[in-house]
Design a protein around this nucleic acid. Structure first.
Lengths: 345, 345
DNA sequence: TTGTAAGCGTTATCAA
DNA sequence: TTGATAACGCTTACAA
């Protein structure tokens, strides 16, 4: 049994088993093995199926993805580009997407861009080379590479932050409406000095949030004072920096809209430095709702974005792109946000 | 120019450009293109190199990974299995590893296991099918699939938590020593009632941390009271649950060793419920040092694990496994931890 | 129902 | 220095 010896050698060496070995062991052609493994039924007798399956099982055979990919011109790979994995909100979205993909036997390649446009373009090109079946772009930045990628036939889904260039399917919340909701809440609470530390305006999401907030205030006859309006990166460090600039000016704001939770954490730190109580002395309002808030930031009201819902939605978006329905235009998927009010004892 | 028309068609359709197109455009054979792209120098004239490179650039050509993988029997894929992406400490490690891999042109497949043994085995098998060049196992669980994977020739690196089965290269801190350090700190502070809410003992890391702590206490003549010792999952929920059980017993502990920061957060929540001040009324000590601690948990002392150092270390570990040096045994890579003391005013 | 054989995009061997 | 060509592991017409 020379072939058996070969199989044993490969198993011992830890080398993966190929379709040919399975075919030999089941005494059928490799074509039959392939058909059985792919469940192309009505094409093999029950007895053959059984023999093949047993042989595959005994050898621990699983079809090699690279071979399959080459032949079918399709991988089971999806890329997720993410600005910052250590932002727990982004991480929660990534987790949700990964879970949905794994369920459909897709593997997720994770690319951390650090909001760096050059890095985004490098990844975009590299993912094309990997022949991924789709790219989920969490926190897209306008770049030449992105424009190029949109021309290729690899589907791109914009997650949480809309396409900076206009066209492109989007999954996320209505940030403008959410921004308005924050303003209305402040008005209801009777705050007269409302401020904003918003995210970078080149980010479609940050811009929409801020504009919603500003417009709703204006609609109520309130205007944001210049010294009550600041732009910051979506980080704690920048939040702290902004707070140091803003909380010194008079009158001190009673309520601060923050572009995201991270910014709010930074502001909170300065409040601690000033011995200001949140929200009694000054109210903070964030965006996203980091899962840790419930435990570590019970003082932070925020717009809760349902991170768990992103996975199924992104999958749905890809499916729309993969199998376009006649007369069924591809549409954005809007998720519901909610107001998470905390600390108002 | 019929070939030009074809190229344009493919570009318009967004289809990827193949090596053949580049060859045609540069008027050389595909073999030459391949050699040039792979930098197999001394094998092509400077003029040819230049022509090929220009053609490739104009067409935006990048070698397709699946084809390359099939031929070379090697991918540029690494899998990272992670227990919980929403744990910011794990996420920070993942980020560090991804950055190091990307620098070497490896793409990282992210698999979230949720500490589920069955999920771990599913991923392990699937990653073999993807022919990944290595598997980084963050938080390994003892399973049949893991034993199987260790027999195969895909390198496995155990990250943060040692192999449950003994052999296997490890990257992380000396958890036993760190546990001892916590105990010594408590002793120095003069706490007489020391407790422990440790992680699951099947986790090699949790066990080492706890045993170091317990042994160091014992060496100082202190024994952990049964009601001051509790096992919890590494989650905030379980920390809260454990705190509810433990803080009721008398005498109330003055200092609590927590298996990781998440557990400490849960305990902290119960302290708030009881209006206990941390660390004045009760000191908490965590493990890992979630990056958010600096901002949201200034009351939490913890063992700082250098998450940024994992990437380079994991890469080094893989390189040892890929290119074994004669007479140079593969060795674990121990990272330095440090004590992060906070809130002791 | 099963097998033969072509081909997916590369790399690497061998000749020229 | 270059080019023709076989192989990598798999799927899928097409033939039997």
């Amino acid at each position: 049994m020379e072939q058996t010896a070969e199989i044993l050698r490969r198993l011992r060496a830890g080398e993966p088993v190929g379709i040919a070995e399975v075919a030999r062991r089941a005494r059928v052609s490799i074509a039959t093995v392939s058909r059985v493994m792919n469940g192309v039924s009505r094409k093999a007798s029950a007895e053959t199926v059984e023999r093949v399956l047993r042989a595959a099982d005994e050898l621990g055979y699983r079809p090699a993805h690279p071979g399959r990919a080459l032949r079918t011109r399709q991988t089971r790979l999806i890329a997720l580009l993410i600005p910052d994995l250590t932002n727990a909100f982004y991480a929660a979205i990534a987790k949700s997407i990964e879970a949905s993909l794994a369920q459909q036997d897709y593997a997720m390649i994770l690319c951390n861009t650090d909001e760096d446009p050059a890095a985004q373009d490098r990844y975009l090109a590299e993912m094309q080379a990997h022949r991924v079946r789709g790219i989920a772009l969490l926190g897209a930045v306008a770049t030449p590479g992105l424009a190029l990628a949109m021309r290729r036939d690899t589907p791109v889904v914009f997650v949480n932050r809309k396409s900076p260039s206009g066209p492109g399917i989007f999954v996320g919340i209505d940030n403008y409406a959410a921004g308005q909701a924050v303003a209305r809440h402040f008005l209801e609470q009777g705050y007269t000095e409302c401020a904003a530390i918003h995210g970078p305006l080149w980010s479609t999401a940050s811009r929409a949030r801020f504009e919603g907030y500003r417009d709703a205030l204006k609609a109520a006859g309130r205007k944001l004072k210049p010294c009550h309006t600041l732009e910051a990166a979506l980080t704690m460090e920048d939040g702290l920096w902004a707070a140091r600039r803003m909380l010194g000016c008079s009158p001190r704001p009673q309520a601060v809209f923050c572009g995201n939770d991270q910014i709010a954490y930074g502001v909170f730190r300065h409040c601690r430095e000033l011995s200001l109580r949140v929200p009694d002395d000054i109210a903070l309002f964030g965006f996203d709702d980091n899962p840790l808030n419930e435990w570590l930031a019970p003082w932070l009201s925020t717009i809760h974005v349902p991170s768990h819902d992103f996975g199924p939605a992104v999958l749905l978006a890809f499916k729309q792109l993969w199998e376009p329905q006649e007369g069924q235009p591809v549409r954005d998927i809007l998720l519901d946000y909610s107001m998470m009010l905390r600390g108002s004892a």
